[in-house]
Amino acid sequence: MIDAVAAEWLKLRTVRSTYWIVGLAFATLLLGSAMALSGVSGWDSLPPERRVRFQAVPMEQVIAPIVQLSLAVLAVLAITSEYATGLIRATVTAAPRRWTVLAAKASVLAAVTLVAGTAIVFAMFFLGRLIVGDRPMPGHTSPIPEEIPRLIAATVTITVVALFGLGLGAVLRSTAGALSVLFGFVFVLPPIVGLVLPEPWDARVAAFLPPGLADGLAGTVADPVLSPLAAGLVLAGYVVISLGAGVFALTRRDC
């Protein structure tokens, strides 16, 4: 298993696309900073009575879906590129216990996305605070320790979405297929649910989708559908079910 992990780590480091994708994820910091700067200048031009109602979602939350999706691309490609090129046959010929291949990929990607995700989320948070400065902007004034659970939840969700993508890739064997499903879960469904479903079902369903789960895990929602523990279990469920299905597909089907 150590050999398998070392091999997957080497695989990840020896293709250029890895650096592009991680670079893209970090580039969201620029995007977030630019948006924060424009938000701040908007704030500065407002009369005080309107500043009270100023809506300013923290930037790490705004960029979260992009970070989730870009790092998930890394995870999806880790398996689907092997199917696309046929390399998977060489991989399982070298490692006939196929579950170890997926387990090794999952370990390496969990580590990479946790490190990159933590770096991006925390950097965005502090950049945001730096840009807001001492302005009493709603949502940007709480003491930093209070924000830590929310930041950790955002990081964990990034890794969960990536591992979910890895499992999807193993099942679907197709980059486009896995990315479409991920895109649906991260970008498309969350806003649609609010539009299509009647109350209270919109909130109930949204709580089970990645953005809602991040909030649920952080425990920052006023009247939560899921407790932090329940949200954590649902997030774990995403990983266990998709990777479980991935292992099943990888071991049962011909390669």
């Binding site: 091999a7 080497l10 695989k11 020896t14 293709v15 250029r16 696309s17 590129s81 092997e82 090129t85 046929g86 390399l87 998977i88 046959r89 060489a90 991989t91 070298a94």
Partner: peptide, 15 residues
């Protein structure tokens, strides 16, 4: 059945 972006040596090292 090789990843086209990898070098020959890296391909062999990975396997």
């Amino acid at each position: 059945a090789v990843h086209p972006a990898r070098t020959a040596l890296d391909h062999l090292r990975c396997l």
